[in-house]
Design a protein around this nucleic acid. Sequence first.
RNA 1: GCGGGCGUGGCGGAAUUGGCAGACGCGCUGGAUUUAGGAUCCAGUGGGCAACCCCCGUGAAGGUUCAAGUCCUUUCGUCCGCACCA
Length: 825
Amino acid sequence: MLEKYDFQAIETKWQAKWEADSRFRTPDDFEKEKYYLLEMFPYPSGKLHMGHVRNYSIGDVLDRFLKMQGFNVLHPMGWDAFGLPAENAAIKNAIRPDVWTRQNIKEMRSQLQRLGFTYDWDREVATCHPEYYKWMQWIFIQFHKKGLAYKKKNPVNWCPDCETVLANEQVVDGCCERCGTQVGKRDLEQWYLKITDYADRLLENLDKLDGWPQKVRTMQKNWIGKSTGAEADFAVENFDKVLRIFTTRPDTLYGVTYMVLAPEHPYVSELVQGTEYEKPVNEFLEKLQYLSDIDRNATTLEKEGLFIGRYCINPLNEKKVPIYIANYVLMDYGTGAIMAVPAHDTRDFEFARKYGLEVIPVVDPHNPDIDLYDLKEAFVAEGTMIHSGEFNGLNNTEAMVKITEHLEREKIGVRSVNFRLRDWLISRQRYWGAPIPMIHCEEHGWVPEKEENLPVRLPEDVAFTGTGASPLAENEAFVNTTCPICGKPAKREVDTMDTFLDSSWYFLRYCDPRNQNRVFDKEKADYWMAVDQYIGGVEHAILHLLYARFFTMVLHDIGLVSTEEPFSNLLTQGMVLKDGKKMSKSLGNVVSPEEIISKFGADTARLFILFASPPEKELEWSEKGVEGSFRFLNRVWRLVAEMFPVIQGAADSYDAVSDADKNLSYILNSTIKKVHSDVREKFNFNTAISSIMELVNALYKYKDGQENLNVGLLKHAMNSLVLVLSPFTPHICEELWEGLGHTETLYGAPWPAVNDASLVQESIEIVVQINGKVREKLIVDTDLTEAALTEVAMADQKIQKIIAEKEIVKIIAVPNKLVNIVVKG
RNA sequence: GCGGGCGUGGCGGAAUUGGCAGACGCGCUGGAUUUAGGAUCCAGUGGGCAACCCCCGUGAAGGUUCAAGUCCUUUCGUCCGCACCA
């Protein structure tokens, strides 16, 4: 064994050995109990950052730990390799995106290996690889067959900087999620996936995902945004069409005092044509066009509207109400038209106030503090129906049902459900993505490429000018093809897929990554799926996780896999901060993993990251903290090295003779137990590590404080220490394990057994309180009864002194914990 | 505005779920050893007090309880998500 803790030599040695022995390959052993452990795969941007190191260190501890528990663990890694940065690099540095990406993958793969992670590299996938995107295209065609992929012309979010469209989900505060540029609108014909068909299931299943953080479930729930209500038809005076509105409050129909259309509503121009209102309406529309989405959607935006000179008739009470257009009504939700009930809707109330519109209360709160006829704000809570004809006196929630039924009976409305979730726009006007495998034929329209012709390969000779349109459109050899149906000349789709499609099923491909004939084998997928533990950043709470759920459901429905939900348990790890801020180049506070590894080693880097904070919390990077972790590993190293000659040849078994033996044995066994439960049940790696530190402290104390060392106990303690520490810092532990005389590698060695007998203590310290304040601590026999405990406590001199002259009101005794004496006077 | 989380020493963070607040680590103070040390070891380290076996202390205020960091009510601060979704 080496004299000094030479982490560099040790880490290189064991990484090479693991690799040479193929230690991390996972067989499809259907007989064994499986555990599918997955961390979100990275985009190969060039180098790993600390967030990656944290994410993958968490996963690696679990892998190593679970292997020790005997599970067949699938722990794969791959690359989310399509995407814009590669293309930008192509434009900027005149390097091909595939070359750039491959270089980055190579670099990052070697960084991952330098951290000692247990990935099964035989299962590596890269989404930009034709073997992968072939099946991506195949899946797209299956979606198309099921009617879940369609093309539609629509105003779409357009990022002028990235020069591509964005899904609604990729627009953050009206800006491009990636580059922050303000997003505009463009009318384009684009491919969509019908995720809205699955809205209800995506929502309902959330309740079953109890292994997910509540926060993520809530975010998805809000994103899907289901609201139940009714649609109702309002006739328009002197107009042949009816206006259909959507409301979640059909109970307030009698309180309607005006109507509001989205300015883009298709009826608006007809309604004002040739009237004095035409001009102001057009001006209003024009003004609105100049408003970006960001302003248009802000709640702070002053509500503005315009009467358009027309009236419509409330179908329930025949009341004639004016029609407005206003900036707060959106065309792309509901029907683009609302009935306004200012008494019971805050937005309508605000608008009515501004334009002096009538307010009619129809729900009575029975609250003396609220003057229904001089409302200060809209009343939106429950109450009793008033001014509502035959519905008067009902509770308003009952009235909702009754009025909806009435609408349906009279054929003037229907029960209706609306979702905020929109269909997923997946076309991207970019090069570096999977080509959408569709062909346009003059005669047959859009036709999928024949499956036997997949993949539709990305051509390599493409010019990147950086100007708007899809680069593939310039490549005639790519564009010109023949119709799969009639064989006549036809043109390929030149847009590529949103990269979120690639990452929506990669976890399924890992189950059978080299399959040439099928997307994946069902038996293998059924064995491995669902992912037992998924780990990644919370920034993917909505997009990626929702899309992946959607894909898995569709693939389930097609019969490709039995699982409907892909991820049973989800852990969202916190960010890595420096000086309280997110590490970023612009702030200049980035700590590079490489630097830490070369200075302290991978084990220290992993240990610090796991020790400094629980995984789901933010982690504050601390150079001093890293040094502390390094110090601890050195302390372990010296301890084992010093004990090695002492315990050499001893058996790994012992009788605890002295009190010190018993004490050490107790600490040892409770540490093994605690590390197990901290890791397995709670992912509390920080407390697991701190208890190992306590064990090391106890071992130092034991060895320095004893005349007669119990060598069997020490041998067992050293072996156990190395075992329980190994998931966190595998390299040093392998080296120590070897030094302790083991010939098999530590990876996959069984977890040490807990000796329950050692955990039973003869005596225990209890606390004696007077009126809830600790006054004395006593060592007593374990498991004393309440009566016996009380007796011991009362007999104590100090306690006697304090309670003398006082009246004892009550005594509470909790075995093995405390006695509380309540006194008066 | 709505929804969710979080407030504990100088710092990162513990506390078997109502039972000794501050584990473990960082930092700091003193000492030992060393030619030297940013190495190692020992002791101390929430505040107050000359001192204690005393008093105070988990953002603030109130409550429940023999007992509250933990439960309830109110409130302040902070972070995150959604944000005119009818």
